[in-house]
Simulated scan of single mutants.
Amino acid sequence: MGTSNSLGDFLRARRARLGPADVGLTPSPGLRRTAGLRRQELAGLAGLSVDYYVRLEQGRESNPSGTVLEGLAHALRLDTEERSHLYALANHAAGRNVKTVPARPAVRDNVRQLLQTVRPLPAYVLGRTSDVLAVNPEGLEFFPGMRRWPAPQRNTIAYLFLHPGARDFFADWKSAAASAVAQLRTLHAEDPHAADVGEFVTRMTQESPAFADLWQRHDVRRRRSGTETFHHPEAGTMTLSFEVLRLDHEGQRITIYQAQPGSRDHDALLRLSQLVRTGSSGPSHS
């Protein structure tokens, strides 16, 4: 008798019930040989690499994190009972007792107000492992394609390594990737037994060979203010300065991008804001 793979069976069954139109996707060309979403489509919606999602379906990965499960539940449009069932299957597959997923850290109301006050400048609040805890509309539009990820899955490091558009968006992707991993390595060194950091590193190492290679370099660095160039597919190329303000609350930090008024880079930021005003981007749900 073969090994049971109830989690993979459930994921395949729910994936087969959804078509591209159900989740706001334009059907890709070519004959669809199976019903429902393709694996790569669902992986993209859930903020996962295709390889990691395939391993989940095939039962070769049996310990998905709470963040991964939240992304899958959102992408599969699960209701409350189906979501609970997904968690139960995942806990059974991992051989662990059912436990409550920790709540995302709260962002203070005055910090959320600051995100709105600095508009139209893109701004967001990150948690310890770079989860996007709050973001203004321009900040969400800033990262091409991130708006399609469910809110619990939005993470700037995961975006760097897993989103197919990231290498085009960051003009110097190698530098940005090395910096992101070095920041995470610094956090890990400060508290090697932190569960949130360990869980995130495990997930990223499994999903991204590029992340795994950089993690083994043991570089350390803190995220500081600086300048970076981006290629936005609609707003255009922009070189922006950014300020990182550390908040005295559970390791949270706020990042704000800006450019000199009257410059071409500032014009690109205004085009980004126009994309929001014309309704090309939906609500952030953050």
Rank of each mutant, 00 (worst) to 15 (best):
Met146Gly: 09
Pro144Tyr: 13
Ala194Cys: 10
Pro137Asn: 09
Gly226Tyr: 07
Met238Tyr: 05
Val220Trp: 00
Tyr124Ser: 04
Ala210Glu: 03
Trp215Glu: 04
His163Pro: 05
Ala212Pro: 06
Pro122Thr: 13
Leu114Ile: 11
Ala210Trp: 05
Val201Cys: 03
Trp215Met: 03
Gly226Thr: 06
Val118Pro: 00
Met238Ala: 13
Ala134His: 01
Pro233Met: 14
Phe211Met: 09
Pro164His: 09
Thr205Arg: 06
Ile157Phe: 09
Leu240Cys: 07
Ala180Met: 07
Arg221Phe: 11
Met238Val: 09
Ala195Val: 10
Ala182Thr: 11
Ser179Met: 14
Leu240Glu: 04
Asp213Pro: 00
Phe142Lys: 11
Thr227Leu: 03
His231Lys: 15
Tyr124Lys: 10
Thr156Asn: 07
Val132Gly: 01
Ala235His: 07
Ser179Asn: 13
Phe169Tyr: 14
Arg222Phe: 02
His218Ser: 12
Asp168Tyr: 14
Ala180Cys: 12
His188Lys: 12
Phe169Met: 10
Ala210Arg: 09
Gln116Phe: 02
His188Pro: 03
Phe142Asp: 08
Arg222Met: 04
Phe211Val: 06
Thr202Met: 00
Ala195Leu: 08
Thr237Glu: 15
His218Ile: 04
Ala180Lys: 11
Ala134Lys: 00
Ser130Glu: 10
Thr117Leu: 12
Asp191Pro: 12
Val132Phe: 02
Gln116Met: 05
Val111Tyr: 02
Leu140Phe: 08
Met238Leu: 09
Glu199Phe: 04
Pro233Lys: 13
Gln183Trp: 06
Ala235Glu: 05
Pro120Lys: 01
Ser175Trp: 02
Arg222Leu: 04
Phe170Gly: 04
Ala180Asp: 06
Asp191Gln: 15
Gln183His: 15
Ala194Lys: 02
Glu190Gly: 12
Thr186Tyr: 03
Thr205Leu: 01
Val220Leu: 01
Leu184Ile: 03
Gln116Lys: 10
Val132Ile: 08
Asn136Ile: 02
Gln153Leu: 15
Pro209Asp: 01
Asp168Ile: 11
